[in-house]
Design a protein around this nucleic acid. Structure first.
Length: 285
DNA sequence: AGTAGCACCTGATTGC
DNA sequence: TGCAATCAGGTGCTAC
């Protein structure tokens, strides 16, 4: 599933193949892919791609005065000059002849031409432009301007279970179900612990663990279990071999040997170690 | 206001 | 064997 490392891998591929190019043709297939922008993709034809940006799991092509926002949802892919594949939802032709396909089996992804809004001054004192529909998304843990102190304080004010807070993109973005389980495992925190019941030290350690796992997964090219997530050249990442909690329910904990357990938290499956992540447990590594 | 739950969707897997 | 129910999960809306 595309979380921050997977989306960043896709962004890097898109930078290589699209920056500096002009979109000469854009077609969408079916209404869902442009559900959020009934005017369709016509507005992007003729625009030059100046950059490809990302916040959390949201991507956008910078088109100068406007942006084209892309969210991969559960199964979205961008593919460059690939063979004819099923589930093509949109197709772009660039001025160098490249064909860029947006492919999405489960149709939770979308493309949306969007206007920029200027947010308040960021820490470095410069005004920041961000597409309107991304403006409610918090900075992610790999954002150089992320404010860790503020994030810890905000987390400690939440009465929700910590797993739910990790998945709340308006608190911290980029973390999905896979890396949430990994970070909680690494930090030795039970997913159902109320956020406000934790200490600043443990929340800090949790975000350190989350940052580390996102960085390791990014270095590996992302996590992929099947063909649903691939990079723009069709290759898949291999971080799934490194997962220690997610998807390992019923298997022994790599730290203590206890059997990993699966529960539902906030409607999402959550795998954890009852011993290492028991209430009040502290893991030092 | 803050929080919780569910709908959206399709293919794979599980159960009877 | 075949069909139906279940599961997966990011986001955003609705309801409390």
């Amino acid at each position: 599933m595309p979380e921050l490392p997977e989306v960043e891998s896709v962004r890097l591929g898109l930078v290589t193949h699209t920056v500096g190019r002009t979109i000469v043709r854009a077609e969408s297939r079916g209404a869902r892919v442009t559900l959020h922008s009934p005017e369709g993709l016509g507005a992007v034809v003729g625009a030059k791609i100046g950059a490809v940006a990302r916040r959390g799991k949201f991507l956008w092509f910078d088109l100068g005065e406007s942006a084209l926002v892309a969210h991969l949802g559960m199964s979205g892919q961008f593919r460059v000059d690939c063979e004819e594949l099923p589930h093509v939802r949109a197709r772009f032709f660039l001025d160098d002849g490249v064909r860029l396909d947006f492919i999405d089996q489960r149709t939770f992804g979308y493309l949306a031409p969007d206007r920029y809004i200027t947010t308040g001054l960021s820490r470095d004192g410069r005004a920041e432009r961000i597409p309107a529909r991304v403006s409610h998304i918090a900075r992610d843990l790999l954002d150089p301007l992320a404010d860790r102190e503020h994030l810890v304080a905000e987390t400690l004010r939440k009465r929700s279970r910590i797993k739910t807070v990790l998945l709340d993109q308006s608190v911290v973005s980029g973390i999905g179900n896979i890396y949430a389980d990994e970070a909680l495992f690494d930090a030795g925190i039970h997913p159902e612990t109320p956020a406000c019941a934790l200490t600043a030290e443990r929340v800090g350690a949790l975000y350190d663990a989350a940052t580390a796992v996102l960085e390791r997964a990014l270095a590996a090219g992302g996590t992929s279990f099947d063909a649903l997530y691939v990079q723009v050249n069709g290759e898949s990442g291999y971080f799934d071999r490194s997962l220690r909690a997610y998807g390992r329910s019923g298997s022994p904990c790599e730290r203590c040997g206890d059997t990993l357990k699966k529960i539902v938290v906030g409607g999402r499956s959550s795998t954890f170690c009852p011993t290492c992540q028991g209430q009040g447990s502290h893991i030092s590594n």
